[in-house]
Computed example of a mutant assay.
Amino acid sequence: MADAPTDDVDTSRQPWDGGGQGTGPSNSAPTGGAGDPAAPERPSDEDILAQQNQIRAEQARVSEYVGNEEPMSALKEEYINGNQNFVQKIAKLEASYSTFRRTRGDGNCFFRGFIYSYLESLLLARDLTECDRIKSVIQEWKGKLVDGGFQALVFEDAMDVLLEQVAEISKPYTNFAHDKLLVDMRDDTISNLIVMLLRLITSCEVQRREDHFFPFILGMYDEPPATVELFCQRHVEPMGEESDHLHIVAITDALQIPVRVVYLDSSGLPTGGGSGLDATVHDFVPDSCVPGTHPRVHLLYRPGHYDILYAKGG
């Protein structure tokens, strides 16, 4: 699930098909003695990367960074002939959520869904107080990033782009303004600059609070990176790296934006006399928020992917 590398896909290289039958340079050991079946060829790292990039490039041609709103029934239809636990969970979610919006599965889906949903909520609610607050928070992050060792030249343009989006949202609501937000978040330059900025802020937040986050990092990998800085360089800052619990905690704390994630996975316990499963729900509410603060952003998690949810009644 990577975004940036898709422009560099080597289309002349055949993708590895998983069978190892002559689909790329061989790194395998010689075959055994007479009568022994030939050992499957192990694909090179370059072959595997080429295959992944080709898959991502194909997906980029058929899906927007941020899709259109769809009824929850469209989500349920995906599993109607398969995972019945998912079907039951989605059916229960329909009581709370009316629609959802897909994001491209490119590894940046959390950050893109998070910021689009947040900006859209400001636009629809005409929450000028929150617009002013987030502008101040973003501007404060310029100094924090520089203090954290990030060069202003790297992130200043991205920060200006995000601030411009907030400024547009501060204007009176029109359908055009709503449409423009969607168009902007589908634009390669605008959308990816904003995602890059969010990744840098997340990295800086994790490194600023090293004592808090390092135990989580140790628990995430059999061979964890030796330092928080190395973890961020490998798993936070690069475009296309998937996000998990740690990333969500860091960015919600950094920007003070509460988020609810609904997990459509194998977790959950039977409810209603065993009549089905409830999706697990987790609220990420920064300590700086006043007690009782409701999430501004609602995201749906499916293994390896995040989409946007729309609660009934706004």
Results as ranks from 00 to 15, higher is better:
L193G: 04
D106W: 02
G18C: 08
R302A: 12
P37W: 03
W16C: 02
Q59W: 11
D47M: 00
E94F: 02
E168G: 14
R101Y: 03
E164Q: 15
R186V: 06
P40R: 07
S136P: 03
D287M: 10
G107H: 08
P238L: 05
L309P: 08
Q52T: 01
G219E: 06
T31P: 00
M239W: 02
T11H: 03
D10T: 00
F216L: 04
A2F: 14
E78Y: 13
H212S: 10
S191T: 08
I138W: 05
Y306N: 03
L122T: 08
E164R: 15
G24E: 02
A4I: 09
L218P: 03
L230H: 10
G313N: 06
P40C: 05
Q54F: 11
L277I: 07
F176V: 02
A152T: 07
P303I: 09
M72E: 02
K92Y: 14
I201G: 11
R302C: 09
Y173A: 01
G148V: 04
E130R: 11
T174N: 07
E69D: 05
T99E: 12
E70A: 15
D287C: 09
D188T: 13
Q54W: 06
V261I: 15
D157Q: 13
Q84F: 08
R13H: 10
F214M: 04
F176W: 05
V66L: 08
A311W: 03
L264C: 09
F231M: 00
A38R: 05
F213Y: 15
S63N: 15
I115H: 08
E140K: 12
G105P: 07
S98W: 06
V195D: 09
L119T: 01
S12F: 04
L123G: 13
